[in-house]
Amino acid sequence: MPTVTSPDGTTIAYDKTGDGPPVVLVDGALCYRAFGPATPLAKQLADRFTVYTYDRRGRGESADTAPYAAEREIEDLEAIIKEAGGTAFVYGISSGAALALEAANHGIGITRLALYEAPYLVDDTGPVEPPDYRERIAEDIAAGRPGDAVKRFMKLVGAPRIAITMMRLMPAWKKLKAVGHTLPYDREILEPGRKREPLPSDRWTSVTMPTLVMDGGKSPEWMRNSQRAVAAVLPEAEYRTLAGQTHMLKAEAVAPVLKEFFAS
């Protein structure tokens, strides 16, 4: 298992497949190499690119170091990019899109940036987050109940109660609980865009590389509003909707779009 070491000493595990210019894939909440969309997408891209997938800190085979800070995750991604040669194309999905955006703003060697549905809240159309959500998640984790944190998160994102109940009976539940303690990490990364108000126009001024901002044609309007808002505040952004897709994006739907964007 190849690894890189982040500046704070945290070991980050990764996989590398394919041949061509380097592309790094950044997962969203509760996902990692063995559980999520990155590995299937890497297989779709490997005929054109050298694709790096990695376990974000605290997930899968990567280590973790307290205290958490979003800056440490940016350093993790930078360590992967340095391993790839110092520059790379980067694609992030969901909270991984928010992480990739913050990392690009720090100037870490991202030459083209693709983002899919960073779940920001930019108006009153989105789901209402309970005012004590972050505190309750932290309490669940501190008490050794990562499963409760996962249930709370799934309820927040709109999963039906019956779906949550059924999920607890499936093999995937063990994998979800194993990374439940990282949910506060995602929430911290998303904080700048979760205020139910227009995105700050001066936050990502260093994101001057070509950027593709995407959403799904079947995603809710609040999510699509958010992506249009992201594209509007970035100087070199293109906004595109992938027909028929939801937040559960299919690798075969996004792979051709990424190939086109990263090759242009």
Rank of each mutant, 00 (worst) to 15 (best):
V207M: 02
K175R: 12
R196P: 00
T182N: 07
R196K: 08
Y185P: 07
K195P: 07
D202N: 08
V150I: 02
R168A: 14
P210D: 04
E191G: 12
H181T: 08
K177S: 09
A163S: 08
G144D: 08
E197A: 13
T208S: 14
K195R: 15
L176P: 03
G144C: 10
R161Q: 15
D140H: 15
T211I: 01
L199F: 11
A172W: 07
L156A: 13
V157N: 11
P192N: 00
R187C: 05
D186P: 06
D186T: 02
A159D: 01
G144N: 11
G147V: 04
T208L: 12
T211R: 04
F153C: 11
Y185F: 14
P200E: 10
P210N: 01
E139P: 00
R145M: 07
I137C: 14
K175A: 13
I141V: 14
A143D: 02
T182C: 09
G147H: 00
M154P: 01
P192E: 03
A143F: 05
R145I: 11
L183N: 10
K151E: 14
K195C: 10
V157E: 12
K174T: 11
V207N: 02
K151N: 13
R136F: 05
G193H: 04
I162K: 14
P160C: 08
K155F: 13
P192G: 01
D140E: 15
P171Y: 01
V150A: 07
I162D: 15
T165K: 15
R168N: 12
S201T: 15
L156V: 05
L156R: 14
T205M: 07
E139H: 14
E188W: 05
D202W: 00
D140F: 14
A159G: 09
E139D: 06
H181Y: 02
D202H: 03
L176R: 03
L199C: 03
V150W: 02
R203V: 03
V150Q: 01
P198R: 00
V179F: 13
W204M: 06
P198S: 05
V150P: 12
V179W: 14
P146F: 00
L183G: 07
R187D: 10
L169I: 08
G193R: 03
E135P: 07
R194F: 13
I189C: 05
K151A: 15
P210Q: 10
L199W: 03
R145Y: 13
V157C: 11
L199Y: 07
V207Q: 02
M170C: 05
G144E: 10
H181P: 00
K195I: 13
R203C: 00
S201E: 15
R136M: 10
A163P: 03
R136N: 12
L183D: 02
S206Q: 14
R194P: 06
T208K: 09
T165G: 09
E135Y: 03
R145L: 10
G158Y: 00
M209Q: 12
R194Q: 13
A163N: 08
L176V: 12
A143N: 10
F153E: 09
M166I: 13
L190V: 10
L183W: 04
V207K: 09
R196M: 05
R196Y: 12
G180E: 00
K175Q: 08
E139M: 05
M209G: 10
M154K: 06
V207L: 03
Y185M: 06
Y185S: 05
G158H: 01
P171G: 00
